[in-house]
Structures are given as C-alpha cells and as structure tokens.
Design a protein around this nucleic acid. Structure first.
Ligand code: MG
Length: 326
DNA sequence: GAGAAAGTAAACATTG
DNA sequence: ACAATGTTTACTTTCT
C-alpha cells in the first residue's frame, strides 16, 4: 500500500516504514521486529521488486521497491473489498494522504470517509460501536470487520485476525475479471490461499489481541462470505501488520538466546532457550487479563475460567512435546 | 495428526 | 567502522 500510495509507485524501505507509521501509528510504539518483517517480506515476496539501481540512482542506501505489475492488479483488487479502504468503490482518492497534511496526527481522518479518527492520539471509530486502541484497531482501518470468533483456542489471536482478514483476502465476488492472473510457484506468499472461515457473525463477539489491544464488536458485520477461494494476493505482506502484534512483551526470547552463548549456532541456542521457558503464569495471566477485559466489556465474564483452563491445557501439551524432544 | 502456509526472530551478507 | 538494507535460515503457529 505504501508503494501504491507513492506517486512514483516506488519507495525505499525507509519511506515504507514511514508510511506504515503514518497510517498505523501502533507501530510507533511497537517493538522493532516489524521493520525486519517489512524487509523480509519485500525480499521474499516476488511481488515486490527492487527497481534497478541505475534508474533509481542515488537514494543513498538501498534501492527503491516496487510492485511487480503482474501482481499489482490482484493486490488492488483484493484491497477494494475492504469497505473503508481507500480503494473502496466510491472513493475518489486512493491511498494518497492529503497532500496538505502528511503528518498523521494532524489529519482528523485517516483518509477521506474513513470511519476512524483520532482523539488524543487514540484511534476511534466513528459510529460502529467499536472503541479500541492499539494495533487491532489501526489495522482494522485495513481490515475493519472484526468478526466474531468462537472463543476458541485460547490465545490464538491470530485466528481472530485472520478471521477478519478472510473477508478481504477472500474475494466474495469478482467484478469485471477474476484475479486469476496466473501466479505461479513463488514463495507461496504471493499466491496465498485465504483461510476459509466458517463465519459466525452473529451476536456479541470478542476479539482479543493482546494486553492493550482490545476490540469488542457489537453486532457489527457486513457482507461476510466464507467460501474458500484462491486469493492471488500477497496476503502475508498485508497481514503481517496485524499478525505482528501478537508477539509482544516477550523479550525473554531474545535475551535468553543471547544469554545462552553466542557461540552456539542459532538452532542450538533456540532449543537451549526453550529448555528454560519463561514463567508460564505470565502468559496465562496475560491471557487471562486480556480475556478478562474483553469478556467484561462483552458482558461474558463466565467464559473466563474456561479460557484459562484451555490455555493451561495447551501449555501442558506444549511442555510434553518439548519433553519428548529432549 | 500430517503437512502446507504464514508468521517471527535472527544470522548473515551487502553496501553507502 | 558502522548502520541501513537485503537475503536466508530456523523455528513456531495456524489452518486444512
Ligand atoms: Mg521480492
């Protein structure tokens, strides 16, 4: 999107970072991993191409990134599906941020007709009954439908996210031409399939996203379909924005690995680190707390214990696996 | 339950 | 020399 938003349709990573920060302020306070992810995606996905250094001379460090025309159409096609996305039908101006106000905090709306606005730096939605803060919301500028999840596998926040994503990554109807433009092998990112989602969009629903990310949907749903279809679109590059938020507050991994002998190869270090896990309760507690807030908001407190128990079960299973491995 | 897909973290390589 | 950039590898999680 950043690239697409650029007049020249090409951007250096730095500017991509910038765009993301501008449109998803969450990342400003997010741990640094996301930049890595950005680069990773640019590099791995075939739909992103570096433009020749010759033509893009002297931007300093790296080169400009562009979208391979072969994938562009599909990508945009899928983005159009999102109701509030700049590419939505009826929106004259795609992405391009108001030329007058490049700074995120000065523009009241993320883009024209966006249902989101800022108040004291917090992103709010105009009238859908969703009040949130944090990545979830911000990401939902892209993926505004927060679909309910059967409060299932505990801590699987991704599920919620993917669930929501499914709406956008799953073409419900193909306009003029199906996005069937052949997208071959690639690194599966580029021709990812959308998850098929048994859609249950009724009733109060809950979607948790981590400590500070809470989204409660109050019967908000629009045009949801669930047929699994090929999604000729680089879903990864988009969804990492949301996905990324999942792993926060776990600095132990990094530190542990470092602490465990820099001489060890990564592989060894990892398993070594796994051997001494972080205190499990923290995860549990974190989960419980998050779930608690959510459920409280949703008025479904009773589920909490259920959830916690499942979390513990999952944890136990994990430990057993680990034990087997060693 | 296996395997694919999609994700993160980090090592490693390159370059200005 | 260093930091930003780019590539690759290892591993986890989620979905089918
Ligand atoms: Mg690429």
């Amino acid at each position: 999107m950043a690239i697409e938003d650029a007049p020249s349709k090409r951007l250096p990573v730095k500017d991509i970072y910038g765009w993301i920060l501008e449109h998803f302020p969450y990342f400003a306070s997010a741990p640094t991993g996301w930049k890595n992810s950005v680069r990773h995606n640019l590099s791995l996905n075939k739909c992103f191409k570096k433009v020749d250094k010759d033509r893009s001379q002297s931007i300093g460090k790296g080169s400009l990134w562009s979208i391979d025309p072969e994938y562009r159409h599909n990508l945009i096609q899928a983005l159009k599906k999102t109701p509030y996305h700049p590419y939505s039908p009826g929106l004259v101006t795609p992405f391009t941020s108001p030329p007058t106000s490049p700074q995120p905090y000065h523009s009241p709306l993320l883009w024209p007709r966006s249902p989101f606005f800022r108040k004291n730096g917090v992103l709010l939605q105009v009238s859908e009954g969703v009040i949130q803060n944090g990545a979830c919301v911000r990401s939902h500028c892209l993926f505004p439908v927060i679909r309910s999840l059967p409060i299932s596998p505990v801590g699987r926040r991704t599920t919620a996210i993917r669930s929501a994503l499914g709406d956008y990554l799953t073409p419900c109807d193909y306009p003029s031409h199906p996005p069937s433009d052949d997208l071959q092998e690639d690194h599966n990112y580029s021709n990812a399939k959308s998850p098929s989602i048994p859609c249950s969009s009724q009733g109060p629903s809950v979607s948790d996203e981590d400590d500070d990310i809470i989204a409660v949907e109050v019967g908000v749903h629009r045009g949801v379909k669930s047929e699994p279809k090929e999604v000729p679109l680089d879903s990864a590059s988009v969804s990492f924005l949301s996905q990324h938020a999942r792993r926060r507050g776990l600095p132990w991994t990094k530190n542990r690995l470092r602490a465990l002998g820099d001489t060890l190869p990564l592989k060894k270090r990892r398993s070594a680190a796994l051997a001494e896990k972080p205190p499990l309760e923290s995860d549990d507690e974190e989960m419980k707390e998050a779930a608690g807030s959510l459920l409280h908001l949703a008025g479904v407190r009773a589920c909490l214990n259920n959830i916690t128990n499942r979390a513990k079960a999952a944890q136990k299973e994990k430990e057993q696996k680990e034990a087997l491995r060693n």
